[in-house]
Design a protein around this nucleic acid. Sequence first.
DNA 1: ACCCAATCTGACCAAACGGTCAATTTCGGA
DNA 2: TCCGAAATTGACCGTTTGGTCAGATTGGGT
Lengths: 236, 236
Amino acid sequence: MTGRNTRSSNVPTLLGPAASRRERRRLDSEARILTAAEQVFAEAGFSGATTAVIAAKARLPKANVHYYFGTKERLYRRVLKRILDAWLASGDGIRADAEPASAFSDYIAAKVEASRRQPFASKVFANEILHGAPQLTDYLAEQVRRWVEDKAKVIDHWVARGLMRPVDAPHLFFVIWSATQTYADFDCQIRAVLKRERLRPEDYSAGAALITRMVLSACGIAEVTASRAAKRARRR
Amino acid sequence: MTGRNTRSSNVPTLLGPAASRRERRRLDSEARILTAAEQVFAEAGFSGATTAVIAAKARLPKANVHYYFGTKERLYRRVLKRILDAWLASGDGIRADAEPASAFSDYIAAKVEASRRQPFASKVFANEILHGAPQLTDYLAEQVRRWVEDKAKVIDHWVARGLMRPVDAPHLFFVIWSATQTYADFDCQIRAVLKRERLRPEDYSAGAALITRMVLSACGIAEVTASRAAKRARRR
DNA sequence: ACCCAATCTGACCAAACGGTCAATTTCGGA
DNA sequence: TCCGAAATTGACCGTTTGGTCAGATTGGGT
């Protein structure tokens, strides 16, 4: 591994579309490897995944994968990194100046949508935590913990203003996370029970609707109808 | 592998306490291996687990493990089998002649208790489904699907009798399963957020209480207080 | 046109792992 | 007591897998 990071001096305006042929090709290969890796790690876990399979799925020789990412573990960490950034950003709508009803239902809808659109990401994350989060101990203890502390403050604020009944905020998030992510992580079980070859959009929306109803009613919040939510969104 | 199944002719009254020394020792070894295997499969997944580690944890030579169970896959299936039997039996309280409120809260309490007492079992099961249930496709499509159909009928019956609001029964179970099992499968994340070295009894009961509250309120059922539930239990 | 660094890749290697086996020991029945 | 089946175990084997490397190729700067 030599100077992969030594930007050549002629690099154009910040990796713009005018990047050199070499750079474009490299970025394309890295992206293909990361996508393939996410899928393979999701399906087989860290130990079950092999760099050979990842390389084949990315249509590259195995040595190429190691040229770009060094070791399987480093590649795995890069895959995790991509997933975590999206994870943390997903709760931005839970702010003190939002309405609890729409904040919760939007958050739940976004989480279920993530399970639908990025099932591999969810599975990689689930697998990592299931096995003790050897790569994420710091992340959980710092970022996620702070995230929950912040959101708990928002919820306490809503409670103080009489907008909802008191709830145990951390446990509320544990439930929301598990219930929404189960549509990605355990899709196999859900498909078997529902007799589906593949989960359909209405399956996801039925799940989101039930989870929302459970959260809102437990918090003593009147449910927001779809049309009212749409109207509210348009007003902004 | 010779006649391990050839019961010796002197076998006493159905494996009773008077089983021969050999038989007792064999059963003890098998049990130790199964327990060790459950733990190792939970921590490392199927591919990450090695028969050497399982053997070490059972304090037996590796060849002994293969003598009893043949292959790693057969051992894994035996571990799964044990887990599934307990899983199916856990919903026995959900019957048409039960009260919805106590049936749900008992079921949720039992599920959370299972997460507390048998976290390894839950993790092995979660790992299997997460990776597409290669060993459980039939089980999910037959036993679990039938289980849900049965319980859905019970719930519809309760709805028809005006005991609760209509809900999407399958999705209700998806939520209950994921929310209760998350206390075993994702304990690592929960511990990080709650700043715990280990989860405490009150953490599990807080989770169970919230899940129960969410389910009951979503079903339009008044909550059963602990004391009332105890009284009801005593009356039986 | 020419050079050199970046990139690419087939071939290879050592370690780890699942599984086997032959040799030995342990028991239970006669 | 003695025999044979069951049980035990250390040593061994073929395969898989993560990772390496030397040599070939490519492309951009001059």
